[in-house]
């Protein structure tokens, strides 16, 4: 069994790291705290299976990822993933003129996407924009683009149809790009 000192050290050494990682994904601080706790408990119980093949840190992150997915799985029983007016504007409504051209022309961000990701100010801006999405859009976008799950896995885990997934992702991406345009690019000119 674990030395009590050992588990205390875990909390001090990894607690904040695991918490931040979780908070980016689940937004709610209480839920994030709980997930960290459940993760460390599971880790402690499975200590003997940790053979030092990986670093202790990546082993803990491995467990954490599973617990985060469990959290999202539990959510699906509580809500439907049909998009409604509460999920912000339909990207096809009012975004285009009657001839099919853009009503508000997307700006040339003039950046290489990977270089943009090195700009911490921009990453922070995205993080804030993410918190403005409806829960429905945020959850699915997070699973796809932050957590990096494959589309078919998300459909399976969250019990949604592929077409519904694309509608949700399109809406989320569209709101995020607009939010970044307003809160980042427009302020840089």
């Amino acid at each position: 069994m674990a030395e009590p000192l050992n588990s205390d050290l875990w909390v001090d050494q990894y607690g904040d790291m695991l918490y931040r990682y979780t908070l980016v994904r689940v937004k709610d601080p209480d839920a994030a705290e709980e997930i960290v706790q459940v993760t460390l408990l599971a880790a402690l119980q499975a200590q003997h299976s940790f053979q030092g093949r990986s670093s202790e840190k990546s082993w803990l992150f491995g467990i954490l990822k599973h617990k985060i997915l469990d959290h999202f799985r539990d959510l699906k029983t509580q809500r439907t993933y049909e998009v409604t007016t509460e999920d912000g504007p339909d990207p096809l409504e009012n975004a285009y003129l009657s001839d099919g051209h853009w009503a508000n022309i997307p700006k040339n961000w003039d950046t290489d996407p990977l270089k943009a990701a090195e700009n911490l100010e921009l990453v922070e801006a995205l993080s804030r924009c993410l918190d403005k999405l409806s829960d429905k859009l945020r959850n699915i976008f997070v699973l796809k683009e932050v957590q990096g799950l494959a589309s078919d896995e998300i459909c399976k885990e969250m019990k949604i149809q592929p077409t519904n997934l694309w509608v949700i992702l399109h809406r989320a991406r569209n709101q995020l790009r607009k939010c970044l345009e307003t809160n980042y690019w427009d302020t840089k000119q």
Binding site: M17, Y21, V24, R25, K57, S58, F61, P106, K107, W109, T111, P113, L114, A116, A117, E118, L122, V123, L126, S127, L130, F141, E145, V146, Q147, G148, R173, L176, R177, L180, E181
Partner: peptide
């Protein structure tokens, strides 16, 4: 823009 949003999200998701 959409590709940039994706790259930023991935960065945000890193350990």
């Amino acid at each position: 823009q959409l590709e940039t949003v994706r790259a930023l999200a991935r960065k945000l998701g890193g350990e």
